[in-house]
Structure formats: C-alpha cells, structure tokens
Amino acid sequence: MSISLNNISKSYKKLKAVQDISFDVNPGELFGLIGPDGAGKTTIFRILTTLLIPGEGTATVAGFDVVEDYKEIRNSVGYMPGRFSLYQDLTVEENLTFFATIFGTTIEENHDLIEDIYVQIEPFKNRRAGKLSGGMKQKLALCCALIHKPKVLFLDEPTTGVDPVSRKEFWEMLKRLQKKNITILVSTPYMDEAALCDRIALIQNGEILEIDTPEAIVNKFPKTIYNVGADNMYKLIQSLQKYKYLYSVFPFGEFVHYTDKRDSFEVADLRSYLEKEGLVNISIEVAQPNIEDAFMELAR
C-alpha cells in the first residue's frame, strides 16, 4: 500500500475534525477525497504529511509510520497545501532551487519529471512568485512539490477557485504524472472532478460516506432520477416540494433532478399535477445519476 489509514480520528478541542477514517491507496493510484469545506480533508492531509499527530489510529505512507518515521515520510512525499505557500518574494527559479536544495537534489536531476509543467512557467523564471497569476502559482507549487521525485504526491484542493479551463489542464497534468509511477492523493470540492479519479472517498463532517470507483458509486444509486423541466424554475421547485410523493428535488443545470417515494409511478400523474399547478412547457425524462446525486443521497 502506498497510503494506509486505520481508524484515524482527530479532534480540535470539542470539534471532531475526522472520525474513524480508514482507507488504502494502491501504488500508482489516483485517489480522490471528495467533499465540501469542513469535511476534514485538510486534517487528513496534514496527518499523512506528518504535520499533525493523529488523535487515534495509525497510518502509513510509502510503508512508513506517520508518527514513528516522520523524517522518512518527509523525504519521500510531495505536498501542495491548499493555500499558496511558496516564498512570494523569491523568483520562480529561486523557489524551485530552494526546494531542490532542501531535499539535496538539483533542478537538472529531476528535470524530466517537471519538464512539461515547468516549460509553461519558464519564460517567467525571474519573476517573483507573488507576482504570478493564480494558474501560474499553482503550476510552480506543483513543480516544487515534485522536485525531489516523491513516491507519493498530496494535493489539497489544487483546483479550488480555479476556472474550468485551468482545472481541465491541471487534471491532464495529474494523469501524466500518474503514468510516471507517482501515487496521488488529491482532494476537491468539485464533484465533477471525482469522475477523473481511479477511486474516490466521499467525505462529509469528518466521516467517510462511501469509498469506491466513481462508476460503482453512481451505479449503487438506489432510485430512478427524472430530469424535470418547466418554464419557471422557482415555481417548479416549489410545486414539487409540495407534491405528496416527493422524495427529493434538487436543481441540476437546466432541469431539476426529481426522485419519487414510490418504487414505480406513472409519469403522466406527475405531469398532470404540475399542469394543475399552472406550470407550462413541462418535460419529464429519466436521467443518469452522477456523483453529486450519490453524494447528496448518502449525506441525507
């Protein structure tokens, strides 16, 4: 196992940040921790990168114990925290050289690993890190986390607040890194990114809701979902919320995702109810569930 957590818990005073978390990440796997702010993602990252001692439980990274062997772990992992934490007043090149030196290596030695990311920021190698745009900072931080050729890479919300184009590019970079035999643990609040991971853990309020491949999690969704549309979204949601057979209704893009309490029902009944409510241009179609549906069902 590249990463292994066994019954890890951590509290800050009264607040239970994570409770009884267990999961394993296989070598070379791209594993996603998916959950909103406050789910406990960062606490897990800080425990695994030896910056925080777990309250209970044990964990290993690259075969080393997070408490006993913290020095070995620090040499064999790369960590990109959620908050930009490079030296703002050092240049791009100085930051990279600094991190290489700390780990007793050079930029040249591991150049092949960072090459296709570094070329994108190399034209600005004499610019101070604080003066870079968000997307460029993110790429520099990734280069610095990779400079010592880590066995395991920890990325805490690397795409939060990043636009969809840069997010897509970032995930393409991760896929390429994965091919170079680096195990990656990445966290994100964006449910659509879950589908890009080999396996995911859905996490909320410090507890894991489910661990599996994205496909398996979606396939386990227990209900039939209908895409329901109408001219007035607000009225549509209000009407559905009053419907006696309602199980759940959530806005989803241009439609709402509706599930019914009954195992089977006539779509025509729902349609005539909505017509009576005064809605027009009603459409009702069966839809495929996605990770976000699964998350919301599990979090109920």
């Binding site: 034209p123 870079l132 460029m136 184009v165 840069s166 659509d192």
Partner: peptide
C-alpha cells in the same frame, strides 16, 4: 461547461495575456 471550454480555451490560459501577470 463545454461552451466555456470552447470559448475560453484560446489562447493558452496558462499564459494569460502572454505575460502571466496577476
């Protein structure tokens, strides 16, 4: 999402304005 990707893709968002200034 696809509308956004089609529109905002060019030129490379990695190098905004070709200068990468914040």
């Amino acid at each position: 999402n696809d509308v956004f990707l089609k529109l905002a893709r060019i030129p490379s968002p990695t190098l905004p304005k070709g200068k990468g200034e914040n």
